[in-house]
């Protein structure tokens, strides 16, 4: 066996190890993306028989379509609020779990439960929590003598409800990632800070957060991806309404693909969502140096 052959063999090891996973990822998911990109350049829909090549026409169309622009706007609000509230909540819960001295594993286990539930089931739960006067939330409020709130009938409250449901659904994983970061911090740093007489808030903001910034970055990426792609909670919960107040991009895409059967337009929206996700993750990577 000559030297270069051996070396080649050695070099090929990582590639060989990666073959199975890459086969799945590229074969299934990559194929889907490429198919989407190609189809978005044609006009494939259910109301014309021909499928001509149209270049960027679909993209130009959606960016002039008020429905799409509304969805984009709602998506940005939805994702921004989900991510901001989600990360704060995750951080608070993660620190509390970290500081917990007893029953730690019980509560850690409990935290992940929402993540294991299917989207349809979660949507049904939230629907009946907030539905009109039947909902538990309103019944709860009425105990305190408060008036019935029209959660799902008001445009902004409906948006609030889907953000809440989304946060409930996607934060568990972020909490555990942040907890991972916290547990990686050297205890001595806290001791030193305490001796220096640093206040609790200062410890959180000046020691903990900088030390786990990369975990925060990972959580942020997770939260934004999951929120941008979320439709299986929103659709059964509000159907995009009232008006089009909760019709975020993923819901808009779903309607294009499954109701209008306008595959090209749906693919164009998919590419937009992908691009947004990429841009967002790029920002996080830069800011948090993940």
């Amino acid at each position: 066996m000559d030297f270069s052959y051996k070396q080649l063999k050695k070099k090929s090891v990582p590639y060989v190890l990666l073959i199975p996973s890459m086969l799945f990822v590229i074969g299934v998911l990559g194929y889907g993306v490429i198919y989407g990109v190609v189809i978005s350049l044609f006009e494939v829909n259910v109301y014309s028989l021909e499928t001509p090549f149209v270049g960027l026409k679909n993209y130009i169309y959606i960016f002039q379509d008020p429905t799409f622009l509304n969805s984009l706007y709602k998506s940005l609000i939805f994702v921004f609020m989900s991510v901001v509230v989600g990360i704060i909540l995750s951080l608070v819960f993660a620190i509390a779990l970290y500081k917990l001295t007893i029953m730690k594993s019980f509560f850690k286990g409990l935290t992940l439960i929402p993540y294991l539930i299917s989207g349809i089931a979660a949507a049904t739960m939230f629907k009946f929590l907030f539905a009109g006067d039947v909902g538990m939330v309103n019944q709860f409020l009425s105990v305190f003598g408060m008036e019935e709130v029209l959660w799902l009938a008001d445009e902004w409250l409906a948006l609030f409800v889907i953000i809440l449901a989304n946060i409930w659904f996607v934060t568990p994983f972020a909490i555990l990632i942040l907890l991972a970061g916290l547990q990686g911090i050297d205890e001595q740093i806290f001791e030193a800070a305490k001796i220096d007489g640093a206040s609790k808030l200062r410890i959180v903001f000046q020691i903990i957060i900088p030390l786990i910034s990369s975990m925060i970055g990972v959580s942020l990426i997770w939260l934004s991806f999951a929120s941008f792609n979320m439709f299986d909670i929103i659709l059964p919960l509000t159907g995009g309404g009232p008006g089009r107040s909760t019709e975020v991009l993923a819901v808009y895409l779903y309607k294009l693909a499954f109701n209008d059967l306008n595959y090209s337009m749906a693919s164009a929206v998919m590419i937009v969502i992908m691009t947004l996700n990429l841009a967002v993750s790029f920002v996080y990577l830069k800011v948090f140096k993940v």
């Binding site: 990666l18 996973s21 998911l29 941008f228 792609n229 969502i273 996700n277 993750s281």
Partner: peptide, 23 residues
């Protein structure tokens, strides 16, 4: 390759159904 692994997370699941069906 690492980046390729990230890609699936950024595409909405619903939009994969049509290409997968055809495939």
């Amino acid at each position: 390759l690492l980046l390729i692994l990230l890609v699936p997370r950024i595409i909405p699941r619903a939009s994969l159904t049509v290409p997968l069906y055809m495939g």
